[in-house]
Simulated scan of single mutants.
Amino acid sequence: MTEIPSTSTLDHIVFLSPPGTLGETRKKFVEYGFDVISGGVHIDGLTENLLVVIQDGVYLELIAFTHPIKHYPEGSEERSRRESHIWASKLPGWIDYAFLGTSPTVSKIINSRAREEGSGVRYSAEVPGGRETPAGRLLKWLITGPDPMSKVEGAASNGSLPFFCGDVTPREWRVGVPTGHAGHPNGVTEVAHLTILIPTKDLDEFERQLTSVIGHTPKVGPHDTRTWSLSTTTESRPPHLILRTPQDREEERYIRGRKGCIYKVAFQLTRPEGGLLSI
Rank of each mutant, 00 (worst) to 15 (best):
R253F: 14
E132L: 15
Y97M: 01
A114V: 10
K70V: 14
R258T: 10
G257M: 13
Y59E: 06
K90F: 13
P199W: 14
I95E: 03
P19I: 10
T189E: 14
T189F: 06
S103W: 01
G260Q: 14
E207N: 13
I143D: 09
A155C: 04
N111I: 15
K28N: 06
V41M: 06
A135T: 12
T7V: 08
P148R: 03
P5V: 04
L197D: 09
H85E: 11
M149T: 12
L243W: 03
M1R: 12
A64V: 13
Y72A: 07
Q55N: 14
L243A: 04
P222I: 03
E235L: 02
S103K: 00
S38M: 02
A156H: 06
V106T: 12
P246L: 06
K151I: 07
P246Q: 04
E61L: 09
G176D: 13
P218C: 15
P19Q: 13
S124V: 11
E83S: 12
E77G: 09
G93M: 05
V36T: 07
P239G: 05
F29R: 04
H216Y: 12
I13N: 02
K219Y: 03
L10K: 04
K201W: 15
A192M: 01
E48I: 03
I13H: 00
E116P: 00
D35Q: 12
D204F: 04
V121W: 09
V53E: 02
T2N: 05
H240M: 07
K264T: 14
S160V: 12
E3Y: 03
V213Y: 10
F99P: 00
S231P: 00
A98S: 07
R79W: 07
A266D: 04
T47V: 13
R113T: 10
I69P: 01
W173P: 01
P128L: 08
G180T: 11
R79A: 08
F34I: 04
P73Q: 10
I279D: 02
A64F: 10
P218V: 14
V175I: 11
R137P: 00
S8K: 07
G136W: 12
T9V: 14
T25H: 06
P238F: 13
E77F: 07
E126Y: 01
I95R: 05
S157A: 10
